[in-house]
Simulated scan of single mutants.
Amino acid sequence: MTVINETHFNFPGQTKFYKGKVRDVYTIGDHYIVMIVSDRISAFDVILPDAIPYKGQVLNQIAAKSLKATEDILPNWLIDIPDPNVTIGKICDPFKVEMVIRGYLAGHAWREYQDGKRFICGVSLPEGLKENDRLAAPIITPTTKASIGHDEDISREDIITRGIVAEDDYLQIEQFTRRLFQRGTDIAAERGLILVDTKYEFGKAIDGKIYLIDEIHTPDSSRYFYKDTYQQLQDETKPQRQLSKEFLRQWLIENGFQGKEGQEVPFMSAEVIQSISDRYIELYEKITGDKFRKGSTHQITERIEANVMESLKRLS
């Protein structure tokens, strides 16, 4: 096996297991979460049949670097990175929203705008914008966090009115979202990139504090443009050079799939799978400035199990 499609571990003290779209999450007692980032890939809230080599390692290692680069803004859940595909962290009770923040009109927001919508998640957008235009100021467009099915756009007012997040907590995570996005923007600019949009997730630990959880600033949670060609391509109304999953979404759309009922995922050739893997590695090297070192694909599950067991032993 050269990819991690799914895992079936039974760690000491394990009390729960949850399989997400991309991550396998093991709860250890009431202290730790073991998050294994698989090579599964999803688009339009659908897990695609083929896993992507090294994708999980890319996501896990970018997230680890990004969490460490933002820990002065607020605490995060990270405790240990015992394996290229694993993060062990603090247990938090997650807020039931994902905080999406956008500096440019791209992706889902552009598709909504193109359909004639001028209010997205309660935020007003002006007439006359074109795809990938920079917004006057970053906007927050939250989504509900669905465990099954599609996430849905929601406004700040609805989140508070419906009691999804308490008002005081929501106002705090809004502020954290803006500060994190500014930090991500600054880091991306140093690497010749534009952080177009991204999402953050937050939770509360047993100490009552708000923590940043899950991944941040990865190609699964973020969209990046190349800074040096942005303005010229925009002036010429040409597609932006970007590093994100949008290229995959566009490929799926062109092949008749948007996750709608009755649609079938198109066949992904070995060449398509390799190109997706190459894109993920490219983003890792571009956003971190480090050369990507591929983890061993020999006995992957045995490697992960041994590394996690050793880490849990140290933590106990």
Rank of each mutant, 00 (worst) to 15 (best):
I253N: 06
V22T: 10
Q250A: 12
T7D: 02
L180W: 06
G107H: 07
A205Y: 02
I206Y: 07
V22P: 00
R314E: 12
F17Y: 15
H31Q: 14
F247W: 14
N255Y: 05
G128W: 01
V272D: 09
G128N: 06
E6N: 15
E261V: 15
T229V: 10
Q250R: 13
E254L: 10
I148S: 13
R303T: 08
T297F: 06
T185G: 02
P126W: 08
S311G: 02
D214E: 07
F247A: 14
G107A: 13
R156L: 00
S269Q: 07
Q232L: 13
P53F: 12
Y226M: 13
V25W: 00
V25T: 14
W110G: 10
D158N: 11
K260L: 15
Q231V: 09
I154F: 05
N85D: 10
I139S: 02
D228P: 02
G116S: 04
G13F: 03
Y211W: 09
L135Y: 04
N76W: 08
D30S: 05
P142K: 06
E127D: 15
T141R: 01
Q57F: 03
P53A: 12
R249G: 00
P12D: 00
L315A: 08
D133W: 05
R223F: 03
L59H: 00
W77D: 15
E246V: 03
K238L: 14
G163M: 13
Y170Q: 02
R293G: 10
D133I: 07
G20W: 07
K209T: 05
A189K: 15
K55S: 07
L48Y: 05
S66M: 14
K199G: 06
F247K: 14
V123D: 04
G163H: 12
L59V: 06
E6G: 12
L135E: 04
D186C: 06
A137E: 15
S221K: 07
A137F: 13
E302T: 13
V3I: 11
L59R: 03
L252N: 12
S311F: 03
T301V: 11
G107I: 09
Q57A: 15
K65C: 08
I88D: 10
E98D: 12
E215D: 08
V100A: 08
T27A: 10
F202T: 02
V25L: 13
I159C: 07
I206N: 13
K204R: 15
G103C: 02
R314L: 11
I88R: 11
T2Q: 15
R314C: 08
E152M: 10
Y32A: 02
R183G: 01
V308P: 09
L171F: 12
L78R: 00
Q14V: 06
I91T: 09
A306D: 09
G184A: 05
V308F: 11
G149Y: 12
I304N: 00
Q263Y: 09
N10D: 14
E282V: 01
P219I: 01
D115Q: 15
D115T: 09
